[in-house]
Design a binder for these strands. Structure first.
Lengths: 138, 138
DNA sequence: ATAATAATTGCAATTTTGTTGCAAAAATTT
DNA sequence: AAATTTTTGCAACAAAATTGCAATTATTAT
């Protein structure tokens, strides 16, 4: 499966626009997760803030990116693996946030743990966020 | 150990004020977690928005409540277990958010899982948030 | 290729959320 | 009961996010 920004947009039946191409490429180039503010900085005044908000929301809706819950409650976004489809995220991996450099990693090879819930609770989704010190800062 | 709001405040060497008593009682009465907005609604115009922010922050500092990271990045607070002391939270339990009724549960008896991280990553804290359908909505 | 249609963007205005300084009020200490 | 300390409410401010709408851009049909 090809992975150019253009292909991803087409595969998801999205109109091809400068903002969508550019923002998607940012995610593909950067290893870590990105906040809305990061994207604003990296794109300068190419696009309006509102466009960035809407583009991110569109990508989340389509299953192209997913949000990451963080301890300090800032909103982070990261690319989903290919298996994600519209309305159905399978980002079954954990996230790691470095307290030092503040980069967020999607640890794709660390599966979410299985958790036994009390009777009556049905799991649909599980988010695991580990924070500490990353390899680069060690 | 007694659990009236007054006792909790005294134990933590906090001045006894209406807002602190009222807000603490809200947490004690409600099973789930509360957002700043919830508290604002439930207290009407009894207290200023700022007071609520400061009270919540004070409680977090003292280890009376803790924050919960959520996937939609709203800030949630919930009562800590008694073992929490100032500056040292031991909220080593997972959280469950019901997609239906939107209530957040602290599953105190479900411990956070142990996760094996890739080489070089050092864990300091782990947050697990499971979402799905709770007992009441089942 | 071009016109018609549909979708997206940018702007302005607004709303929501959170913070800060300071004087007034309330709680605690003496 | 007075002195001191802490907390509160107000006002102003700042940041983050949302909405409606006209203008622009992309897609579809001709």
């Amino acid at each position: 499966m090809s992975t150019t920004s253009l292909d991803v947009l087409k595969r998801n039946q999205l109109s091809i626009t400068d903002s969508r191409k550019k923002i998607l490429e940012l995610f593909q180039v950067n290893t870590g997760a990105l906040a809305h503010g990061d994207i604003e900085k990296k794109t300068g005044d190419l696009f309006d803030r509102v466009t960035i908000y809407r583009t991110l929301q569109t990508f989340v809706d389509k299953g192209i990116i997913h949000t990451i819950p963080t301890a300090d409650n800032s909103v982070l976004y990261a690319l989903c693996k290919d298996e994600c489809t519209q309305g159905h995220h399978h980002d079954n991996h954990i996230h790691f946030i470095c307290d030092n450099c503040n980069v967020t990693f999607c640890l794709d090879h660390v599966a979410s743990p299985h958790i036994t819930l009390p009777k009556g609770f049905k799991e649909k989704r599980i988010d695991v966020v580990v924070s500490g010190i990353c390899t680069n800062c060690n």
